[in-house]
Design a protein around this nucleic acid. Structure first.
Ligand code: FES
Ligand code: FES
Lengths: 143, 143
DNA sequence: AGAAATAAAGAGTGTCAACTCTTTTTGTTG
DNA sequence: CAACAAAAAGAGTTGACACTCTTTATTTCT
């Protein structure tokens, strides 16, 4: 469905929203250990998120990643677009070239409903909403 | 979402259901040209489907693939299981190890609903249902 | 039986996501 | 300023999927 990169990115951003603030940044080491994500790989992903302004970072001792004004308001599809590109949003389940109601494959009606529904939900959910669920113990970021 | 192999397999089986019968088999060449699928690759996929009894085949002149008693009744999840394995049915959207209501990731409730809904639909749809839609001109198998 | 057609089988190639390792840059602190 | 810590950058590795090409086995037809 979605790439591993997306899962890693989303979990990392949520974790930072919960545990990182301007005075107490989250290091790559800490992040990768807490979430059980290979840390070099996570480094790459974080670079990308910083470049897109989803989170901020500082180098040097006591450096790390921390939430900025945008972070909490970031919506899941924003992150999906960064990690997985735009194609996810419009691809046919059977891989035929066009995907639209005027030229549907045999699965289109059902699939488009499912896909677009999921994406719409993800376009409304923000990172801080996810963080809430984790803080309250309702949902989990690891294992 | 699903592999290309799955799309190829499903389109091929549907095409055979429509155009192939015991007296008039569909050759690999014809199949791959009609559906615009690389024919050597399609050959591999068809091998697998024949092995699983989804369609039958004969070699030699005027050989090819044709629908058997099972073909039309085959349900989409059967084909999905052959091409994509079992993992699709139970994987977490964020890639955490367990995926169940007792240990949900922040996306679980929405995602599981969407995924299981889609799979349930696919567990009820048969190849002959798809074929009907194509024959009546409502849906398309190519492009 | 021999030739031709066709699926089956197998080996090889390209690409990309996912992951690892090394080096560089930047910032902090003593 | 020197030492050090941490992110950034870059190069390399691996495995799986997607695809190609070649060879073999089987069947039909003459
Ligand atoms: S055309 Fe296949 S899902 Fe839209
Ligand atoms: S736990 Fe993530 S989708 Fe079920």
């Amino acid at each position: 469905m979605f790439s591993k990169t997306f899962g890693y990115a989303l979990r990392a951003v949520t974790f930072i929203t919960i545990h990182g603030n301007d005075g107490n940044k989250v290091g790559l080491q800490e992040l990768s250990q807490a979430l059980e994500i290979p840390h070099h790989f996570l480094g790459k992903i974080m670079q990308d998120l910083v470049r897109h302004g989803v989170v901020d970072s500082v180098k040097g001792p006591h450096g790390g990643f921390y939430a900025n004004a945008k972070t909490g308001k970031t919506v899941l599809t924003d992150i999906l677009r960064i990690t997985d590109g735009n194609l996810v949003f419009s691809q046919c389940a059977l891989g035929i070239k066009r995907c639209n109601a005027a030229h549907p494959c045999p699965l289109h009606d059902d699939f488009a409903l499912c896909r677009d529904g999921m994406l719409q939900i993800m376009a409304q959910k923000t990172v801080s909403m996810l963080a809430e669920g984790v803080v309250s113990g309702d949902t989990f970021l690891v294992r």
